[in-house]
């Protein structure tokens, strides 16, 4: 599904936390390019810089130096509001802890990003129902997170992330809280979304089994890209 169009580009991205002697370099000049339609797994030990990269990719953080361009736009030059708008219209997020709104139905959870987009009520409902059907939760619309299993909750979260038809789906350890069987279901789902719907997926994971579902695996170590393999099975 790689269309060859450049979606994301890192050029010498550095991220430094703190100042002076207490400063810590999380990223030491990362070069990276991801095209539309890719399914990328990011791996690496903790402190390797993968979470920092994810935050920068998701426009939640900005590089200390270097260039991050998203769809050709220099994100470093955007202010907080512009970055929020970029997230709103082009990015979908899936978190390890699901982060659904409690005591709120699956449908209302999925509708949330559409509310911020100002989508009309009827259209909003229709799109949310479609997204829930895509993740295999048809018939569970009125259930609240408390009434759903972990795997189902993560499906709702994925539905919430894809309901806006984003350019990229950013998943931060989406299977971290799930058992192996549920994890495989989620990975199958992501795989389908990537191959059938053409959604670009960037996913952080600890588990080589999960990374195996991706078409490309990037390893981070000490704030730098260590390996970057196409279609490769992880070690």
């Amino acid at each position: 599904m790689n269309t060859g169009r450049r979606l994301i580009e890192f050029k010498g991205v550095r991220k430094v936390y703190g100042k002076g002697t207490a400063s810590m370099q999380a990223l030491r000049g990362v070069d990276l390019a991801i095209d539309e339609g890719e399914f990328v797994a990011i791996m690496g030990p903790s402190g390797s810089g993968k979470s920092t990269s994810m935050n920068i990719l998701g426009c939640l953080d900005t590089p200390t130096s270097g260039l991050y361009s998203f769809k050709g736009v220099d994100v470093g030059k955007l202010d907080r509001t512009q970055r929020a708008l970029l997230r709103r219209y082009y990015q979908g997020f899936v978190f390890q802890g699901f982060n659904l709104l409690n005591r709120t139905s699956a449908l209302e959870n999925v509708e949330l990003p559409l509310i911020y987009r100002g989508t009309q009520a009827r259209q909003r409902r229709e799109q949310a129902l479609n997204a829930l059907e895509t993740v295999g939760l048809k018939g569970w619309e009125s259930h609240t997170p408390g009434e759903l299993s972990g795997g189902q909750q993560q499906r709702v979260a994925i539905a919430r992330a894809i309901v806006t038809k984003p350019a990229v789906l950013l998943a931060d350890e989406p299977t971290g809280n799930l058992d192996t069987a549920r994890s495989r279901e989620i990975m199958e789902l992501l795989n389908t979304l990537n191959s059938t719907d053409g959604i670009t997926i960037i996913m952080i994971t600890h588990e080589p089994d999960m990374a195996a579902y991706a078409k490309r695996v990037i390893h981070f170590r000490d704030g730098l890209v260590e390996t970057d393999k196409q279609n490769g099975r992880a070690d």
Partner: peptide, 16 residues
């Protein structure tokens, strides 16, 4: 706070 984080992450503005 987490809910607010989620809202900000999925595209809510400070104003929202």
């Amino acid at each position: 706070i987490r809910e607010i984080g989620v809202r900000l992450a999925i595209g809510a503005l400070e104003y929202d």
